[in-house]
Nucleic acid binder design. Structure first.
Lengths: 114, 114
DNA sequence: CGTTTATTTCAACAGGCACTGAAATATCAT
DNA sequence: ATGATATTTCAGTGCCTGTTGAAATAAACG
């Protein structure tokens, strides 16, 4: 990951609401959740939320897709892993100290199995 | 680590010069390096550097001590580890995915052994 | 079609950020 | 004390950020 991207990602996460949003999406898993649900969970004005989503998206930390009238936002785990990787890679003068965490969330199991 | 501290730490690192400064200090190891050396290495005005050092220090990412007329700045590895820990802990809905990296740099060996 | 629901766009504003230049402080050497 | 070196403090400035409120777009439903 380029340094520029790292700074962008850090800046995106360095804000109260956005950190909350991102963590919520991370916990929601790869399927993501609709903007409205995030707005309700965190008690944020819809326009403010759009603003923050944009930042997260520009930073590559989040993706969107449309589903009817809802916009479904989802965390990009690869990006988060890359960020953590960058922070730790220059840890001890280039010497790898410990393996870096890799986050590969299991796809959510359907409530009604086939 | 509290969410407030996390946001502060992320904000501190979310800036070009400061990310450079911190990485330089991380690579310098626990003994740190004088402000002047950082200024020269990164080509930063001394007052600008002080400004950034302050931010890093307020965020708990850096410590200072005086040595003669030099101020020696050093990275706080514990804080960096805590930050990475926080980012990964809420990774997969609370389920730990992989062990988090722990950075414990070895103290620099003296060039002239006893 | 018209209405409701979900989200985005736009304009405006206070506050904070990063940088600059000049001056102050602290320590060391003579 | 005087001067040199290392760093900090202070005032000023343009830019970016986060929030708000009103209006616009997009899709679903009668």
């Amino acid at each position: 990951m380029e340094k520029t991207d790292v700074v962008a990602a850090l800046a995106a996460l360095a804000q109260d609401s956005r950190l909350d949003i991102f963590r919520l999406l991370v916990q929601a898993g790869p399927d993501g959740m609709p903007a409205g649900a995030v707005a309700e969970a965190l008690d944020l004005a819809p326009n403010t939320l759009t603003f923050h989503f944009d930042r997260l998206r520009m930073a590559g930390l989040v993706t969107v897709r449309r589903d009817g009238r809802s916009m479904i936002y989802a965390a990009r785990f690869e990006k988060m892993n890359a960020l953590v990787g960058f922070l730790t890679e220059n840890c001890c003068g280039g010497v790898p100290c410990t393996p870096v965490a890799e986050c590969k969330p299991a796809r959510k199991r359907s409530k009604i199995p086939a």
